[in-house]
Design a binder for these strands. Structure first.
Lengths: 344, 344
DNA sequence: CTGAAAGCGCTTACAG
DNA sequence: CTGAAAGCGCTTACAG
């Protein structure tokens, strides 16, 4: 009863324009598509008829018959459009796509594999020309049949298993290792780890980098100072307060930005920010405003996005080379918190 | 020469499925659309034929003939998908749309009116069901003819002129006024203003709120303490350092988050953070960790996005009421910097 | 319950 | 240079 759709007040079609201009529909088509072999006088008649009627071509109808049948649309499935990493990837993808007159249909997955399947299907049913996915699922065999049907895929931030398509990932393990090695140069030895759910592949990689660095220094992680499964800043703040209340660590490595925020808050609450060194994975806005500034291992989401979209367009244009993993390097940004001098 | 498009390996169509299942195309259509009046045995034959061929329906083709002709897609034009305000609006829009099986085509405008016109047209040519726009342009008369053709519009963050469609905006003027009135309660009188380009309507509104509050207290802005046109944190930091080097103000109001960051950095550089009170418009991460914490007037981008998308769907469902402006209230978050006590 | 015909708005392939 | 016919993949409207 409620929602009786607004009267669609049917838009003018090419037929309407043709009738008003007194030409054939094909001539209107030529003018709309900028084909140059139309008599100037007819071009003018068609133009003014189109303007008068407020005619706008229907692109989906045009693509239906058009050979190749591109929709000039790509799909982008992100972890969460609201988070800075996802939105920076989006921005890079958008810029590249816009230069090629391609639009982006985007949605968030929130680590929900089922939603990923549904959205993938919906995007395919709309015949996007290609798909960039920040994976939430674990099984990507369905990709195979879609690729055979001509769909292009690129994965971002995490590796699909098995590797059926290109993937662009940050150097999570190497970056984490470098970050912790940097931290160890303060000659601190008791290093705590605060991290996200280990079921998330990037979190597991970063934890591996953490243990790599300790091992290289002849150390092993102390289980009492390792906390996994932190998904929010508030959870991280509590966990850190908990640990700091006892015998505090000398240094802390945090595996992602929300965790870093929560742990830094706890350090400030306890006035330990000048005593306990910290390096976080992922940059955070305004990290430089704090005293001390927060040293981080920054990812480069724009580079990830650019690489992903350029691979996707290569694939859409017929590149048949075997799928490959592209690793985007991370960068240490030194701001103070990771270089605290040990008291004499 | 270069990009020979990948062989489209033409996807199976309903006709292919019908042939394999030994039924008419219309029966396949019924099964795909879940029409219940099909013999169970035929349903089964169609299903297995579809699976075998990897059939996926072509939604754009389906919508072409379908009455009403909805594409179940809306367009969203933001200032910059990469900035937190835009991406928070996006997230709210997405959640509402997804619950209704509608996807979102999004793009950034970067304050470029020409790009806004082009993208609006492209989205209309794809026959989105509605359009949410964070305006960059100044002239919205084209909206009128599109509305007559059945397109729904909602504007966000800024008002279109003339007001031809619903608009959802933050309470920029009122929020700024309340923020500055709060600041004046510290009994400081010499209040500086640091703000963005006055050509941006929200910046102008916030400056108006600033002067409103001063006027209500019997004060007038001191031109020497008013700086417009600050677009980055670095510009704001320099401008603040410049002012603070001379005879510093007693209090500062900043009109957006990047400006707040730059000014706070300058205050810390000069160790004036406990002497000069400050309130910023727009919340910033880590504002609570600083000493003192930064008091802000926070916007609610999620509420803006929710309201915008629900108005849009109402319009799409035939709501014909006159266009209205919906104001989303801002919220003062007290953290210390705006409540500094005056030295005796 | 099932399917052949016509049509959605456009383009392709072909005559003139 | 121009346009009538056929077709893109599907749905509507209609017979049976």
């Amino acid at each position: 009863m409620l929602s009786e759709s607004a009267q669609p007040k049917d838009r003018p079609t090419m037929r309407d324009v043709a009738a008003l201009a007194g030409v054939g529909i094909k001539t209107v088509s030529r003018v709309v598509n900028g084909v140059s072999t139309v008599a100037p006088e007819l071009v003018e008649r068609v133009r003014s008829a189109a303007d008068k009627l407020g005619y706008r071509p229907n692109l989906t109808a045009a693509n239906l018959r058009r050979s190749g049948g591109r929709t000039n649309t790509i799909g982008l499935l992100l972890e969460d459009i609201g988070n800075p990493f996802s939105s920076a990837v989006f921005r890079a993808v958008e810029d590249y796509a816009r230069d090629r007159s391609v639009l982006v249909l985007a949605a968030s997955l929130d680590e929900n594999p089922q939603r990923e399947r549904e959205l993938t299907r919906k995007l395919i049913d709309r015949r996007v020309d290609g798909l960039i996915i920040m994976p939430a699922a674990q099984d990507y065999r369905y990709v195979l049949s879609e690729q055979q049907a001509g769909m292009s895929f690129v994965f971002v931030d995490r590796l699909p298993t098995p590797l059926l398509a290109d993937a662009i990932v940050s150097d999570n393990r190497g970056g984490a290792r470098t970050a912790v090695e940097h931290l160890l140069r303060t000659r601190r030895r008791r290093v705590a780890y605060f991290g996200d759910d280990m079921a998330i592949p990037t979190a597991a990689e970063r934890f591996a980098g953490f243990t790599d660095a300790l091992a290289a220094a002849g150390l092993v992680p102390d289980d009492r100072m390792v906390r996994h499964g932190l998904r929010t800043a508030e959870q991280a703040r509590r966990a850190a307060n908990d640990l700091l209340a006892g015998d505090p660590p000398e240094a802390i490595f945090t595996s992602q930005n929300l965790v870093t925020v929560g742990v830094v808050e706890a350090l400030h609450e306890r006035d330990l920010q000048h005593d306990v060194a910290i390096v976080g994975f992922d940059d955070i806005p305004f990290a430089a405003v704090l005293q001390p500034g927060i040293t981080v291992m920054a990812q480069d989401p724009a580079a990830v996005g650019r690489k992903a979209v350029s691979r996707l367009f290569d694939r859409m244009n017929g590149d048949q080379s075997p799928p490959a993993v592209h690793t985007v390097l991370t960068r240490l940004i030194v701001r103070g918190s990771g270089e605290l001098r040990l008291p004499e």
